[in-house]
């Protein structure tokens, strides 16, 4: 009897717990904690489509690694077009302070530290910003679960996120449609500082690679400018053994880990 009460109480508490847990923050925490590999390595094609439909293609290679504290390092190597070839970018996530970011520009032959706030700048002239390409700490934003909704074949939680410190984000708010079964946003609306819809990101292709949910094709559409960017993972691996020397300023300068 005592045992049955205990189980019933536990089930009740679990039920209450899960009801309360599924607020906006919990949804975004589950997105953030979605299992991924310790490292990733991707060859990415970016098609920049201007308002007249003209397409310019960029090619970059991206490497990420997570340390034991789950802090991430990111390296981006620019392969094409020729004007940006061999430009290399390194971002190191820090605990309790801004990320460190450096860029190596072959034209200057120098590794240059850049401010974290430059994350709001366009990434290679695309509709993505550097921040769009990076993870964002869940607790830098307030999250509100708006509703549940179906998009295509995905049952989604719809969550509105806005920065606790308005200066801490290039957007006034983001609304994310998070697929319930995959814990990945399949659509994100991004609103500018004036509160107007600025961009819409959609995950066009999601797959399970090496057991991990992986977005393979994303479109970012700037509804204000009429431009869009198609980001395609042409090749992707999780848990590749990447040398630690890859995530250093020395690699940026020499191109050798």
């Amino acid at each position: 009897m005592k045992r049955s009460i205990g189980i019933a109480a536990a089930l009740f508490l679990l039920g209450i717990g899960s009801l309360f847990a599924l607020d906006g923050r919990e949804v975004m925490l589950r997105v953030d904690k979605r299992p991924t590999g310790k490292t990733s390595h991707a060859l990415v094609r970016m098609d920049l489509i201007d308002s007249k439909g003209q397409v310019n293609t960029r090619s970059v290679e991206m490497f990420t690694i997570k340390d034991e504290k789950d802090l991430k390092k990111l390296v981006i190597v620019f392969h094409a077009p020729a004007s940006v070839k061999d430009t290399r970018y390194l971002a190191v996530e820090n605990e309790g302070r801004d990320d460190d970011k450096w860029i190596y520009l072959p034209a200057l032959k120098r590794v240059r530290r850049i401010a974290a706030s430059e994350g709001g700048s366009s990434f290679m002239g695309s509709d993505f910003t550097y921040d769009d390409m990076s993870d964002r700490d869940v607790d830098r934003d307030n999250h509100k679960l708006l509703r549940e909704e179906t998009i295509g074949s995905y049952q989604c939680y719809v969550v509105e996120s806005s920065a606790k410190d308005p200066k801490d984000s290039q957007y006034s708010k983001r609304i994310s449609w998070v697929a319930k079964d995959l814990w990945i946003p399949v659509k994100i609306e991004l609103y500018d500082k004036k509160g107007n819809l600025q961009k819409i990101a959609t995950m066009d292709k999601i797959d399970i690679l090496q057991g991990f949910v992986t977005p393979l094709q994303t479109t970012m559409k700037n509804v204000q400018k009429g431009t869009s960017t198609l980001l395609v993972m042409e090749k992707f691996t999780w848990d590749e053994a990447l040398p630690s020397g890859l995530f250093t300023t020395r690699y940026l300068e020499t191109g050798k880990p």
Partner: peptide
């Protein structure tokens, strides 16, 4: 060969990624 874990690729590919 950086891959020690016989990784899966998003698309069929032979050889390396390039880059490093």
């Amino acid at each position: 060969n950086l891959g020690e874990s016989n990784p899966t690729k998003a698309e069929d590919s032979s050889g390396s990624f390039g880059g490093i």
